[in-house]
Structures are given as structure tokens and as C-alpha cells.
């Protein structure tokens, strides 16, 4: 019920981000979404991309610390208010969001997030019939 997210350990130094992007470029990896925030010494660069497993291997080979984690990805109609509705459901279930970001893929909005209680999140998504995508579906959407 989740998608793979690539997380990369990046030092807050000039050039480190570019190095990562160039490695991914060489490996023909396509990024669909990514985020990094303004933490001080180091950061975790989170990426949704094509073939995350391959991307992770390529980075490790180049001596860059990375890992794959599972995150939830809800699909929302690209209309105002949809994110608020979805998060409201999660909140009512008592779920806390650790981090979240979103992007458009085709005509759908994708809400990517991680919570403090993956099992409860799974349950809540199913019970409330929230739309989500998994890794296979995401792969298909990216290659289109």
C-alpha cells in the first residue's frame, strides 16, 4: 500500500546536491518529486523517482549514503480542499504526520507522507476508502 522513497544523506556544503543529481542523471533516473529543507549541518534529501532501487544502488556505489523507505501516497483530485479533507480523516483517527509533501502526476495530485503509526494509517485508508497508489502503479504512471 506504499511507495518507495529514496532518502539521501547530504552534507550542507556547496556542490553536494548537484553531485547527487548528476549521478542520478547519469543513471537515467527520472525525478518526479523531491524535497530538502533548511536544516543546518546535514539534510535528508527525499526523492520520488523512477526505479528507486536502482537509484539507491547507484548512489551507494558512488559512496553516497542512501536508503529506501516506505511512504504512503494518496491520490487526490486536483481540486481545492482535497488535501484538507484527507488530512482531516487521518487526524480524526489519531494519526500524526511526521513529514509530508505533494506533487502533480498527470491530472492527479499525489500526497506523500510518513506517519507515526503505519498500521493504523493502513487501516484508516482502507476503512475510509481513500485512494492511494502503490509502487507498481507509480512506476506505471511515471513511465507513461
Amino acid at each position: 500500500m506504499t511507495i518507495h522513497q529514496l532518502s539521501i544523506f547530504i552534507e550542507n556544503k556547496s556542490g553536494t546536491l548537484l553531485r547527487v543529481l548528476n549521478i542520478l542523471k547519469e543513471a537515467n533516473i527520472q525525478l518526479v518529486a523531491s524535497t530538502i529543507s533548511d536544516t543546518v549541518e546535514y539534510g535528508i534529501y527525499r526523492i520520488i523517482c523512477s526505479d528507486p532501487m536502482e537509484a539507491c544502488k547507484t548512489l551507494e556505489k558512488a559512496g553516497i549514503s542512501a536508503n529506501i523507505s516506505d511512504v504512503f501516497a494518496l491520490t487526490l483530485d486536483n481540486k481545492p480542499g482535497r488535501a484538507a479533507d484527507a488530512i482531516s480523516i487521518l487526524r480524526q483517527a489519531g494519526i500524526n504526520i511526521s513529514y509530508l509533501y505533494s506533487f502533480l502526476l498527470g491530472d492527479k495530485g499525489i500526497l506523500v507522507f510518513r506517519t507515526d503509526n503505519p498500521d493504523l494509517t493502513r487501516e484508516t485508508i482502507l476503512l475510509n476508502r481513500l485512494h492511494y497508489i502503490d509502487e507498481e502503479q507509480l512506476d506505471g504512471l511515471i513511465s507513461k
Binding site: I44, S65, A66, N67
Partner: peptide, 13 residues
């Protein structure tokens, strides 16, 4: 040096 990124979580780091 961090030998491997064992977590995706800032708080854990």
C-alpha cells in the same frame, strides 16, 4: 562519518 543511512528520520539522526 555515517557509515550508512540507517534511518529516514531526522529525529533518530
Amino acid at each position: 562519518e555515517l557509515s550508512q543511512l540507517f534511518t529516514d528520520d531526522y529525529a533518530r539522526l
